[in-house]
Design a binder for these strands. Structure first.
Lengths: 131, 131
DNA sequence: CTACAACCTGTAGTGACTACAGGAGCAAGA
DNA sequence: TCTTGCTCCTGTAGTCACTACAGGTTGTAG
């Protein structure tokens, strides 16, 4: 399969696929005689993995670490778990902060609806540290 | 207060403060005779707000919108309400996305803890995208 | 033969920083 | 007074993870 089909199959931009190759997170593919890249099923899987990991907020460095772990199945899962846990901690922090902002914004909207001049406390909502 | 103190007070890099000024999210400050920037308490608050909003994943454009909301004179309450509602929608979407992410990450970590090394599911979890 | 899609390389732009070069101001100590 | 060292200044360039585009080649359908 050529790069266009891989792109359609995975939903990853062609330019992005070439970028992933350049930055080493995708292996350099075999080329046809005309120089075009040839991909297989394993590339679809790998690229799907990368896309999903990126959506979860892993940077390409972490993705590469996870892929390396995958290729060494006997290696400990502690590394992968540690990376995931770090992401999880950050995600939970973000959720908490967003919920306090959500509260403040909905309060403002509600006050505005009532025709009152809301004294805006958006800044305070974000300024006061969590918990 | 000079830029260094503002930086220490808010935890925002000096270079980043100047960048915020360049990109219009911080007002151009008064200068001393020697050309150095002078800041006050309002800048500390504003910069703290920017930092938190950025941590929440708002881009500088949205931060500027939120700040405009804050500075909105009582006049256009309907307008302010509309902006606040739009931000609220975005915040709620963001929370939902983060929560599904949180679920998956915590499942990954939990399975990794329970399972044996050979059966680590972290990578498999990333391989199968969310429905 | 022509049109056009799909591919190629290489470079440059984006957003939000971050680092660094090269210079100036200023306060304290020798 | 001179020097050291810190903070500040401007301006440019680098980073990450793309994304866009220019300018060229290849393949295929009409």
């Amino acid at each position: 399969m050529q790069i266009g089909e891989l792109s359609r199959e995975t939903g990853v931009n062609i330019e992005t696929i070439r970028y992933y190759e350049r930055s080493g997170v995708l292996p350099t593919p075999v080329r046809q005689d005309n120089g075009r890249r040839v991909y297989g099923a394993s590339d679809v899987r790998r690229l799907g993995f990368i896309r999903h990991a990126r959506n979860l907020g892993f940077d390409l460095q972490s993705v590469q670490t996870l892929l390396a772990l995958q290729e060494q199945p006997q290696a400990s899962c502690a590394d992968a778990s540690r990376i995931a846990q770090a992401q999880l901690d950050e995600v939970e922090q973000r959720i908490a902060r967003l919920q306090s902002l959500q509260l403040e914004l909905s309060r403002m909207v509600a006050e505005c609806r009532k025709g009152m001049v809301a004294e805006c406390r958006v800044i305070e909502a974000l300024d006061t540290p969590l918990s």
